[in-house]
């Protein structure tokens, strides 16, 4: 098949098959093959969207969860990048602690949420700190990777021009490692978001995670599905934006 044809036809096929699946599901539910107490009819879900936006303050919740994620992201950068630099600077520190950071990245920190809860209270602060703790390790590792991969000659150009330490950092090392740092941030925020929404859901507090929990506990099935759809949409848009920035960085770097 010619490439141009695939480019147009294939995505259309993808979208159509998803719609067809929804229609088939609707048919199965209407004919009682699938219980409507497990999966509500897709049309009900679509109708529930307007209702939850109106009654459940979806926008405010969305802003709250986004704000928490944003806060975690800032903390992650503020702490993760300097640690990455330190590990790059000191060969000893790197040998001693890189494996620790990698282990930290894999640790299921969300289980420790009661600890965060007692330390920081039942507040957004707990959620931000947990999001930070869950997402910082990839930024450390990727910063380190980016710095290690920085071409020697770029550093030499700076040195041959009597660059100061601060300038070397700001004008050469950071820009050179930026694409990797950003990749780390995207990975880190994936983990942050899992933990942030997860904790909201667990402790029934805050933004979108709580909304889903509450609607489910009220047994508002169509509303739950609509809210799930909303979270899906929001995180898809968010990560699509992140990827665009990343691609732009890689092009100009």
């Amino acid at each position: 098949m010619p490439r141009a044809e695939v480019r147009l036809l294939a995505p259309a096929c993808g979208v159509l098959s998803l719609i067809a699946a929804a229609a088939a599901l609707q048919a199965l539910i209407v004919t009682d093959v699938v219980s409507r107490y497990v999966v509500p009819p897709p049309t009900d879900v679509v109708m529930a969207i307007a209702r939850i936006v109106r009654e459940e303050h979806v926008v405010a919740r969305f802003l709250l969860t986004s704000g928490e994620t944003f806060g975690s992201g800032l903390l992650i950068l503020a702490v993760g990048v300097p640690i990455g630099f330190w590990l790059h600077r000191s060969a000893l520190a790197r040998r001693a602690f890189e494996a620790w950071v990698a282990a930290w990245a894999a640790a299921p920190l969300v289980l420790a949420y009661p600890l965060f809860l007692v330390l920081f209270g039942r507040s957004s602060l707990t959620i931000v700190v947990l999001g930070f703790a869950a997402g910082v390790a990839p930024v450390v590792l990727k910063t380190l990777e980016g710095l290690t991969a920085t071409r020697r000659v770029l550093v030499d150009v700076g040195r041959s021009l009597q660059i100061t330490r601060g300038q070397m950092f700001r004008k050469i090392l950071i820009p050179a490692a930026l694409p990797e740092i950003f990749t780390g941030l995207r990975l880190g925020l994936t983990f942050s978001l899992i933990n942030i929404v997860g904790v909201e859901f667990l402790i029934n507090f805050g933004g979108l995670g709580q909304l889903i929990n509450e609607l489910a506990e009220r047994y508002d099935l169509a509303g739950t599905y609509a809210a799930i759809g909303f979270v899906l949409l929001a995180s898809m848009v968010f990560f699509a934006c992140m990827e665009h920035v990343e691609r732009w960085l890689r092009r100009t770097h």
């Binding site: 071409r151 000659v153 770029l154 150009v157 041959s160 820009p175």
Partner: peptide, 18 residues
């Protein structure tokens, strides 16, 4: 040490890509 009297052009590609 590096000195402003001497300007260097390197063999590898050294234009800052960003």
């Amino acid at each position: 040490g590096p000195h402003p009297a001497i300007g260097m052009v390197f063999q590898e590609e050294s234009a800052f890509p960003w």
